[in-house]
Computed example of a mutant assay.
Amino acid sequence: MTEQQLTEAAERLHEAVRTGRPCAPVRDLFAPGDVDGAYAVQRLNVARAQAAGARRVGRKIGLTSVAVQRQLGVDQPDFGTLFDSMAVGQDEPIAATRLLQPKIEAEVAFVLAVDLPDRPVTTLDVLRATEFVLPALEVVDSRVAAWDITIVDTVADNASSGLFVLGTRPVSPGAIDLPAAPMRLDRDGVEVSAGAGAACLGDPVNAVVWLANTAQRLGDPLRGGELVLSGALGPMVPVTPGARYAATIGGLGTVRATFGEEGQ
């Protein structure tokens, strides 16, 4: 990509945020499959947000579930940046005006105690570095109209990040069998999605290993204190205004999110 194309793609996505109106896909500005170029666009808007006062608190991994990959027509994971402004407390109403076209998914959150090593990262490295895990709800959102995205669109758009809600009971990652952990996501008490830890690249730990090595390759390795949302354990579902969502993950407990009515 040329500098002009990078800037144009970043500006198109930023304008969607500023105006609250989804934009056209940005893939017309990329060579086919130029994922590194898409991460360069992502970094431009991350830097813009940080310059405006946003504080980075971690990363999110997306597209780890085959079900979600099929929903969006992509075939590989991606990652984005989490900011402090994206965190929402349990049962804190989420205003519909904060999001453009939200969907929700349940996943395992990792909180890192120490930096990941500056070499190829292994499963053991991730387990040693993780202070605890929590159940999480990620509210994904796309600045691209109608979720008409390819891998480069979603990577450039900060991995379609939106908001996140964390459970409040920390658990050691070694205390549970994460691949076998069942997940159920309810909307107003009715199941709308289900899965298990194995849906996330076979094991949520595998997803964090992938992220650690990818972020290191791009020159921005994972650091102690960061939060990592490891990816969906089942299909994502569109958010219904006014609804209450609860995800239960075996061994981790339940995490809840509440949405305001449309227009509120």
Rank of each mutant, 00 (worst) to 15 (best):
E107A: 04
G89I: 03
D141N: 10
A136G: 07
A156C: 09
R169E: 14
R143V: 01
V144W: 00
A129V: 04
A113F: 09
A156R: 00
L100P: 03
P135V: 05
L124C: 14
I151Y: 00
R98A: 13
L127P: 03
P179W: 07
A129D: 04
I176M: 11
V114S: 14
I151L: 13
L137I: 07
S161W: 02
A146M: 13
A95P: 09
A96Q: 14
L112M: 11
T168Q: 15
P120A: 13
I176F: 12
I151V: 11
A109L: 09
R143M: 05
T154H: 10
A156H: 02
P93T: 07
P179T: 04
D148V: 01
P102W: 02
D141K: 02
F110N: 02
E107I: 04
P102G: 08
F110I: 02
R169C: 13
A159F: 03
W147S: 03
P93L: 10
D125L: 10
F164Y: 13
G167Q: 04
R128G: 12
R128Q: 15
A96S: 15
L163T: 02
S160P: 04
F164N: 00
R169M: 14
A106T: 06
V165T: 10
A175E: 13
R119I: 11
A96M: 15
S142Y: 02
A159T: 09
D153K: 01
Q90N: 12
P173E: 04
R143I: 01
F164W: 05
N158E: 05
V111F: 13
R128P: 05
T97Q: 13
E92R: 10
L112H: 06
L99S: 12
I149R: 01
P179Q: 10
E107M: 08
L163G: 03
T168G: 14
D141R: 02
R128S: 15
L127A: 09
